[in-house]
Design a protein around this nucleic acid. Structure first.
Lengths: 339, 339
DNA sequence: CTGAAAGCGCTTACAG
DNA sequence: CTGAAAGCGCTTACAG
């Protein structure tokens, strides 16, 4: 049987003071009035040390109507972007006494439990990376209940929450234009698999097809492969494409990882990149810089979320609700050597 | 001003029932007695729908003395392993009404806030991946307070919590033995950088040095490079090593990623792997299967945490505290083509 | 300077 | 079948 956790009442008895005094000592807070004198303070702290007392988060949250916890929500699996944001958030949060919890959203698994974390006030605020499963109405409802939200989304209008614009569609389209502008007519596309579908997958696919069609190029279904989410599938698909009688001369990939695998496949077949096969990825992951030739890609230019993090804490610190604003974190075509 | 969140009292008034009835309807729980009849039920549910009522997590947790939240703690950055465990945990949790929060521990940032999440009963239980910043005494204290814990660790004894053994030291040592057994005498080591130090970094380094010394081979400081945590540094370091007058004939890397970069560097210099340079990584990430030649590595054989996840929920479901047990998830030398 | 007391929003034995 | 009431462990205006 685990012994009952000590409460402030236990500490108070042990130290011969009231629970109010215990709370004042522990919180250091005292609404303007003087703090308890050192002697009282010490008795309390000694009792805390002796019993191993720990604050009860639920009780404090209920009473104070805030949790001092913020969340980072993102579609799983994690990425260098979500990792970096988690780090920046945690550094900023530590200085203000906030804890950070990450909420990876598993595709396919039920999202009910994870949405409960937001709706039932487990947390005071959150940063939502792109493609989280919440619509504008749900976000507005959360904001109206006092949840501080910074949301990465290219379509939503701010409304009690802030929206970070990446303009991913334009950047993806620029990649297609670059390939066609360089004279490519047979452009292959490594698409997301169906089970990794979603808004962004659609944006990527539409950028590809719209780009081709806008230049009078028919979309050849043979050149579109749903392999962008699997390294081994991507490698095999590109090898297969390059061995065809009429191989593609350019490759756009929905993920940088698959693009890198494509470059490997090309290298292993003796196909020169970019001369015989131009390759452009999407996402701008660090690995793209490591391969030779370095990967041309589409994505955010810098691994830096300081503005978004700062904005979240502005919201949390504000005494009155802040209006929703738009922040720009625009995706760009990042031209390197591969295409 | 955000309107006050509706409470069960508001729902009760609106539906013309008591708060007790509201609670019974919402929880579906009723200690054996009959549930409220459909008519009452409907009135309550209508009021809930009209007001957008959401349960208050803090109040419920305080009253029920459980949170229905479990955590996954792991040293950042995330990895295929932490991603996979998050997924398995979430699937298992969803079926039982539990939410999952991830707690990435940022090296360098203060761990105080994150430890509070465990100690202040923010959660009912957690899986701790290797190298989390909690010692045996802290874990025992948490367990004694009723927190269900499954801890990956090679040294700790179970004590109110379960311990998952990986035996990483033996597996790392086996990698060194394999290289030396194959006749290699000049074995380079890509070590962790100092800032990525920790117990595992030490285990890896010791396996390397002890292995060499056990076979009468002096450790050449020139062959040890602290580059395993940076892809670009690893690539450059291996290129540099291979250009030396007396290049190494084998390479052990503290991370698979750096090992893969090493293979790239070798390929780019025309050095054959494994004939001119045998390469072994540590970690068994999926990427190791993608490179050619496939990476020999050290790690868990399968990306499968079902036993650990099941055990966590066994603990959570148990009416009385369970004794701590050891689970085996032993690391192995996984022999592929590179070394 | 300190304490008694109310109350945050739930759940659940218990009485009717 | 339903409701009044206690209480989970805190914080904080308020009284002394």
């Amino acid at each position: 049987m685990p012994p009952r956790r000590p409460t402030q009442r236990d500490i108070a008895e042990r130290a011969g003071v009231s629970t109010a005094t215990v709370s004042y000592v522990l919180s250091g807070r005292r609404g303007g009035a003087k703090p308890p004198p050192p002697e009282t303070r010490e008795r309390v702290l000694r009792a805390v040390a002796e019993t191993g007392y720990q604050l009860d988060h639920a009780a404090r949250s209920l009473r104070r109507q805030r949790t001092d916890v913020v969340a980072l929500m993102y579609p799983a699996p994690s990425s260098p972007w979500s990792d970096r944001l988690a780090e920046e958030l945690q550094v900023a949060a530590a200085g203000r006494g906030f804890a950070v919890v990450a909420l990876p959203v598993i595709t396919g698994a039920s999202t009910a439990a994870i949405l409960r974390v937001l709706k039932q006030r487990y947390i005071d605020g959150a940063v939502l990376l792109p493609d989280c499963p919440l619509d504008g109405a749900e976000l507005a409802a959360l904001a109206a209940q006092g949840c501080s939200l910074v949301v990465f989304d290219d379509d939503l209008e701010p409304g009690g929450f802030d929206v970070v614009r990446q303009d991913r569609a334009s950047a993806c389209r620029a990649a297609v234009e670059r390939l066609i502008g360089a004279g490519h007519r047979r452009v292959a596309f490594l698409a997301h698999a169906d089970e990794h579908g979603g808004a962004l997958a659609d944006v990527k696919m539409r950028s590809y097809t719209d780009g081709l069609v806008a230049h009078g190029i028919a979309v050849d279904p043979e050149l579109v492969r749903p392999v962008a989410d699997s390294r081994s599938d991507a490698y095999a698909a590109v090898r297969d494409l390059l061995r065809r009688p009429e191989p593609p001369t350019a490759l756009l990939s929905a993920t940088d990882r698959a693009a890198v695998d494509g470059i490997w496949a090309a290298r292993d077949l003796g196909v020169a990149v970019p001369d015989q096969l131009a390759v452009i990825g999407i996402g701008n992951i660090p690995e793209g810089l490591m391969i030779s030739p370095a990967l041309t890609t589409v994505g955010a230019a810098a691994l830096d979320f300081s503005r978004e993090v700062a904005r979240l804490f502005e919201r949390l610190d504000a005494s009155a609700p802040l209006p929703g604003v738009e922040l720009a974190a625009t995706w760009e075509l990042i031209t390197r050597a591969s295409g």
